[in-house]
Nucleic acid binder design. Sequence first.
DNA 1: ATGAAAGCGCTAACAC
DNA 2: GTGTTAGCGCTTTCAT
Lengths: 337, 337
Amino acid sequence: MSTINIQILADTLNISKSTVSKALRDSHEISKETKKKVKELAAKMNYSPNPYASSLRKKKSRTIAVVMPEIADSFFSLAINGIQSVAEKKGYHVLIYLSHEKYTNEKKILGEVRNGRVDGILISISKETKNEEPIDKILAAGVPVVFFDRELESVHTASVTTNDYECGYVAAKLLLQKGCRRLLFISHSASLPICKKREAGFRMALLDAGCPEKKGQVIYGTDNEKSNYQLIKKSLAAKQRPDAILASVEKIAIQVYIAAQELGLKIPEELKVLAFSNLETAPILNPSLTTVTQPAFEIGKSAATILFKGIEKKHFRLENERVIIPSVLIERRSTSI
Amino acid sequence: MSTINIQILADTLNISKSTVSKALRDSHEISKETKKKVKELAAKMNYSPNPYASSLRKKKSRTIAVVMPEIADSFFSLAINGIQSVAEKKGYHVLIYLSHEKYTNEKKILGEVRNGRVDGILISISKETKNEEPIDKILAAGVPVVFFDRELESVHTASVTTNDYECGYVAAKLLLQKGCRRLLFISHSASLPICKKREAGFRMALLDAGCPEKKGQVIYGTDNEKSNYQLIKKSLAAKQRPDAILASVEKIAIQVYIAAQELGLKIPEELKVLAFSNLETAPILNPSLTTVTQPAFEIGKSAATILFKGIEKKHFRLENERVIIPSVLIERRSTSI
DNA sequence: ATGAAAGCGCTAACAC
DNA sequence: GTGTTAGCGCTTTCAT
């Protein structure tokens, strides 16, 4: 910890620390020469103000928190990029927290940022989260919160999401058009709004196409990667196996590819695959993967932009901000005939 | 910002704020009943201590910074995961900064964390970084720094890296064994130690195999993705085109695949490809990609573990810690005969 | 244009 | 076992 502070600068220049403070912040009440002297000395001594003293005094931390389920996922890394791009511009610092899809972790994290540590929070909730209390407490403490991608709909605050329902519909419709009749939606959550919407769109497309509802046309992944994989492989090995898979997230698509490979199932001839994914490698997979690609960077950027409005404008009504940025369906070989 | 503080708790209970402070921290000098009273009230009022007041007083932030070139890259997301896993356990907060491969950004970032904002720093330097001054200043201020993956060798502090030289050697040797004779190493930097080591290993393998040094057997990427791609495509389209590519990073491998696809070059028949990469999709690429896979999570975890030793043990000699965690070569179709 | 003094919320040394 | 007090480093009135 740099032991050099404003008092030392003041002493060496034989002026008061308030003068130094003002000089460093270019106050108009300080003379040109004094400012120059002070700034030169500060530079020479490698002075850098203690941010926490300043935060304490000003009740502003110039820091935001990003809370999300995981980070080793294309969507989330890209979203952080978007968030960071606006935080940088605003001169804000970014704290990252991972819930690992656990509500209790998330709750603990939220408890630790409700006390002045951050000026605002961006959150993508865990799979388990149903209770709005931790977030409501934060809002009650006057800290703005913006959801990105995974929201908790019952909480009255801003959110930036994508058109999940529509994409679920369009994705299923494409698979039907390609002649598939035994579609399987593999979802990573039965409760997450984004997954429910994708699923609802998927079901509606089947309905519209006159396909009867069938048991097993949707299955849900668990937390456990291994058992997930077994589940997927089992479905693909069944006698009445699906002829098309819609994967709700890239990790599942990868597992489907690997399972198909192991089972000797040819994609797209014997099995079509379509995934919600931001995989940069989608075009060079074997075969190239048809994706619903979310605007991950833009979602992060937009959410952060809204958050800063909430931080900077005292009376900005966050709860009126519900941005939906559409995803785009990109057809590739995995769904070709 | 929660307006409720220790003073309010003290007042409502008619005790002093120091008693409250001690009670909350389970000091042995406080009676059981008082502790109970205080904690109950604190819970009821959703009290959460102001971390910055505490930091200011204790001169400890319980926060670390992670500075890296980018985040939308498998290696870095996995490394953060490793870092986060130990920070969580220690109860530390994690600030993330991106240099975007620019020295000036990195310098600015380092200037902002040299003042008590963090108790320690994990850094993977930008491509441009050659000057040790910003980091030396931090060390001079008494803040421990640990390099992960990309180090600045002239700085005397801990580092956790992988066996880059050896991997460059082994990778080139594999390509030679497969009968390739016109190897091309595509590197993302001419100056980064990790790249130089990979390159040196590569060159040594060629030398050992009796291949004469040739111009153009190594090319360097630029910051610009587009022009990078053009460069790669041009090399692959040349009359004397390489019969094997060693890519120093996953992004380059992806571009090579796309360029080969566009040019109608068959991998592995006409072109073998091997990449330093943590791509989760390597096994399902077209064709599956032979990789030198870095222990990204472990590097992050180990670096963080060492950093915390430096933070917690006053006289721990960071400069003696030079950990090397080996990468592993995984053969797949892209280098098969 | 400069300085003195109070105070942000907390902790710790020192009374009592 | 509890309270008083000083002070972390900074910003901000309010004097001068």
